[in-house]
Computed example of a mutant assay.
Amino acid sequence: MTAASPKVVLAGCAKLPEGDGDEAEAVTALRELGVAAEWARWDDPHVDFTAADLVVLRSTWDYPDRRTEFLDWCDSVPGLCNPAQVARWNTDKTYLIDLARAGVPIVPTELLPPGTAPHWPGTEFVLKPAVGVGSIGAARFAVKSVEAARSHLDNLHRGGHTVLAQPYQSAVDSEGETALVFLGGVFSHAFTKGAMLAGNEVDGTGLFVSERLGVATPDPARRKLAEDTLDAAAELLRLRRSDLLYARVDLVRADDGRPALLELELTEPSLGFRHAEPAAALRFASAVRARLGG
């Protein structure tokens, strides 16, 4: 560590230039470790991101409609975490197919590029855009709601989206999702996310659907799957796990009773610090400092 305080920029967006409040304790922890941390919009033309020692992707949640621009910006930032190659792969949910081919058990997923029609499942199902954040554009449909589903699919296709079709896993209604957070490749903490319901409201920013979150203690099967998922992703990306400053592995219990991967968040996930013990924010700050070489 040099005598001058290293500079870390947390990247937000125009509607959430300082995030949604989840990182408040982490920013305090960074400053207590002698790391100057400040927020900036990723698309602010007045900020020289190349001058920062580290730029951490956080609430950059307006990129789905500007993904090419966002990825070009990622490529231009040398100290980006997670790296630009990770953002390019992980901001399109078709990465799930890569992980399935690598042996990771995922929620069954059918890809529907514009111009294609699904094999409508005989159970409740979910349609979601392959490029999207915060469950925006995702919808859950009953078996008899094919017409409504077709209309939703057509709307997403007209917007140029490839769409994921997935059978809804019924255990989510009672258990929700389990999000396991890794910092520097090491498990840190976990939290639950409530079921996606038809009545869920979009946050006032319009960037994400409001969720019910809570503390979680994942069982060994979920811990193992999360570890296996992170290993598989690192191998696909030709990185070490420790190269990933943060990762969030979202799991559900599939209808066969075993855990399955719903999403792997490596670009800009909420890390749930408000639903973890205070030491989680300290672990994040320590992982950042380690990345800085201190």
Rank of each mutant, 00 (worst) to 15 (best):
R289K: 15
H46Q: 15
E38Y: 11
G115R: 07
A280S: 04
V47S: 05
S151F: 12
P78Y: 07
F125L: 12
M196K: 15
T217P: 12
E227V: 10
A247I: 09
A198S: 15
H157Q: 11
N90E: 10
L271P: 02
R241E: 07
L30D: 04
D231G: 00
D256T: 12
D250I: 09
A11N: 09
A14E: 15
A171E: 13
A4G: 11
N155G: 13
V252Q: 00
T91A: 02
L262F: 09
T217C: 15
A11R: 02
C74E: 00
F208K: 08
D92I: 10
L239T: 06
V186G: 00
T267A: 04
Q85A: 14
L16K: 01
Y63R: 06
G103R: 08
A148E: 15
P121E: 10
R248E: 03
R283K: 09
G185T: 02
S170K: 13
L261H: 05
K7E: 15
G159K: 08
E227R: 11
V56N: 08
K15G: 09
D250W: 01
T116F: 07
L266Y: 04
R41H: 11
G160P: 10
A51N: 07
A84H: 07
S242T: 14
Y168C: 10
A24R: 09
C81P: 11
K128T: 10
E25I: 13
G12D: 06
V172C: 06
T116N: 10
P278T: 13
V249M: 07
P114E: 05
R150V: 13
L282N: 13
L30I: 08
G294K: 12
L292E: 03
N155L: 13
R140H: 11
L282W: 12
G122R: 14
R31G: 08
T28V: 15
V86M: 00
A233G: 06
Y246P: 04
F284L: 10
S151P: 07
D65V: 14
P278V: 14
G21A: 09
